[in-house]
Design a protein around this nucleic acid. Sequence first.
DNA 1: CCCCCCCC
Length: 603
Amino acid sequence: MGYSSLSTGVIARIMHGEDVSKPVLQILAIKKINSNADSERYRILISDGKYFNSYAMLASQLNEMQHKGQLEEFTIVQLDKYVTSMVGKDGAGKRVLIISELTVLNPGADVKAKIGEPVTYENASKQDLAAKPAPPPVAAAKKEPAHNNNNNNNITMNSSMNAGMTHPISSLSPYQNKWVIKARVTSKTAIRTWSNARGEGKLFSMDLMDESGEIRATAFKEQCDKFYDLIQVDSVYFFSKCQLKPANKQYSQLDNAYEMTFTGETIVQLCEDADDGAIPDIKYNLVPISEVSGMENKAAVDTIGICKEVGELQSFVSRTTNKEFKKRDLTLVDMSNSAINLTLWGDDAVNFDGHVQPVILVKGTRINEFNGGKSLSLGGGSIMKINPDIPEAHKLRGWFDNGGGDNIANMVSARTGGGNFSTDWMTFKDARERNLGSGDKPDYFQCKAVVHIVKQENAFYRACPQTDCNKKVVDEGNDQYRCERCNALYPNFKYRLLVNMSIGDWTSNRWVTCFNEIGEQLLGHTSQEVGEALENDAAKAEQIFSSLNFTSHIFKLRCKNESYGDTTRNKLTVQSAAPINHKEYNKYLLKELKELTGIGSSN
DNA sequence: CCCCCCCC
């Protein structure tokens, strides 16, 4: 037949704790695990020709192979990396096989049939088990199946650790709290403090990973102090007795429906065992810088590049939170002959030394898009390594030191769209006569206009306090505000401006809408100040609003027909309002004059 | 129990 022969009988040995190198097995079935979790998992029925195991799972990094149809029925595979692990309550636990690396030897479509008549490994004959070399004699492992009722954390922890009976991260849920995980710390935040209506405190959080998946854990207050120094990125630890709760997907890019909180009971112990090979290293899905251009805004990016340029440390106070931030922008270049900006924050920004043009490796940076350019930001949960000792880094170093980065052609962060020069000059009369805004896409034009009336009514609304969510909140009373979009209750809100005003050029007047930022710019006050004045200080509000009357600006306007029920209205939204650049404006007027009169025209 | 990262 010419197919690889299976490692007959090996499943019984593996499931009894023997470490068998690269067993060859056949997949008999594969299905998605039904769970309400957001994460995707596959369970497989796998056979060695004599025994089968239906308690086998793919680590999530192999999901891709299933998507590509490489793990169909009857496929013969070699397990390059796997681990067995306990799932379920103490005592009723089931040992599962988790496969984290495999090689397809023969596609199922070629094999076409089940090999042998496998039975469940739980019926394995004594001689199959006797064939194995003796497992390492671990005293605690012998005691382990006794399942006494002792709730002492240390005993649970120690017996689990010694017997290799740790649980996969992907099996953790709020419904089961007797577990020990063995996980690598892939990132750790700085300690941050908070103070709000619900109290104050400090915290740090970390991301943990094992062969089955990943999860975020957060330590508050006492636990923050207790564990901060112990936890080191890249080290492997045993963790137990954390509280599990649903993850808020708005803030987490990790592939887990839950997250953990440390409690007073939580135990963390460094795993100094050299044999932590089963816990994968941090995986970098490195993307060439040139490819970031084609990726979605806010997507996560792992990449590596040379820090060709480094900006100054900058400090600013956030307008929305009044907190001070420190940042530094770097320019990374790579062999795709492209450059991109990367923003560092906080201590990363303060301590960064870019003068030696180091290699920068990042994981989980976020894309920020502005006017068609894309840049990266190293946010919470992102990882940065400076001059990492990996082959890609050495390759880049050699390339750059030989002048590779001297003529970068592709500036991924360069702004292209929203061009200032492409916006046509037009009067309101022109816009009306040309039916601007009646197409599928909005039309844009610019004009010089004077502000005639600024409406104070409904010039602000109370918005969701989340940075990227500006939805109007519902006042629930008792100083509680509900955001329907975030489906969350907040003790606070932020003011957002939505200012309607009538502006006129020499042809006619139009009502236009200014959103928050332009409203702040024109009124010369923050949305917070404007909102408070409108609510509490009518005289101040009058002063703020009247100061805008009869001022002239160059308005860039978005024009679009919008339907409300059965009526359609032509809406104008202010994109920008700039002081009049007389030189530019006169250039436009002269051009108009030439076209009207033919005087000075070259034709 | 946090969940902030501005601006162009």
